[in-house]
């Protein structure tokens, strides 16, 4: 059963996602898709770690290919976040570019089958109205399509605004 959380920068997605995890079946897995680029990325990751401290999460850092990840046991998994995962699946270290949609979706599907509750965090990146270069535009479009496909699969879709969950599909989880 999947819950999709969507929202912008600093909107309280992570804090809300972690709160949901605390009310969900054990064990708890935190699936970190963000690669620690530079001091700013490391600081962001450190902040997320502090938020999760003492909450019983097993952290699995994995930047691509969730389709082949085997979770040790059923429980709750928090995947953070699809915007990072999509970029990782799309832009390889060697400079090559791939269509990320299939890999991201099959990865999330595989996780969903292995969890009692899967919480997926993503961003809305398509509404700033700025014309980007071709690669960035392709990324924005791919993430939009991935979000739509995930929302179709999810039982519940919530938009986080100023820390407030707004129900876009389903009901507020208990």
């Amino acid at each position: 059963m999947m819950i999709l959380l969507i929202g912008g920068a600093g909107c309280g997605k992570s804090a809300y996602a972690e709160k949901l995890c605390m009310e969900s079946p054990l064990p708890r897995y935190y699936l970190a898709a963000m690669q620690p680029y530079g001091p700013e990325g490391e600081a962001r990751i450190a902040r997320h770690r502090r938020l999760r401290e003492g909450k019983g999460f097993t952290t699995i850092e994995r930047y691509t290919d969730y389709a082949s990840l085997m979770l040790p046991a059923r429980g709750t998994a928090l995947l953070e976040c699809v915007a990072n995962l999509t970029a990782n699946e799309m832009f390889a270290q060697d400079g090559s570019v791939a269509d990320p949609v299939e890999n991201v979706l099959s990865g999330v599907d595989a996780l969903d089958r292995q969890c009692d509750r899967l919480i997926v965090v993503t961003n809305d990146v398509g509404s700033d109205g700025i014309e980007y270069d071709a690669a960035t535009s392709a990324y924005v479009e791919a993430l939009g399509r991935i979000n739509a496909a995930l929302a179709a699969r999810a039982e519940t879709v919530l938009e986080l605004v100023a820390g407030i969950p707004l129900v876009l599909k389903g009901e507020l989880p208990v």
Binding site: G8, A9, G10, C11, G12, D124, V125, D128, G129, I130
Partner: peptide, 21 residues
């Protein structure tokens, strides 16, 4: 609301969006 859209290239813009949020 300034937090939606592509993550900005400039660090100060990213910091700003996070701080407002």
């Amino acid at each position: 609301e300034v937090g939606n859209g592509v993550i900005p290239l400039k660090k100060e813009d990213r910091t700003y969006r996070d701080a407002v949020g």
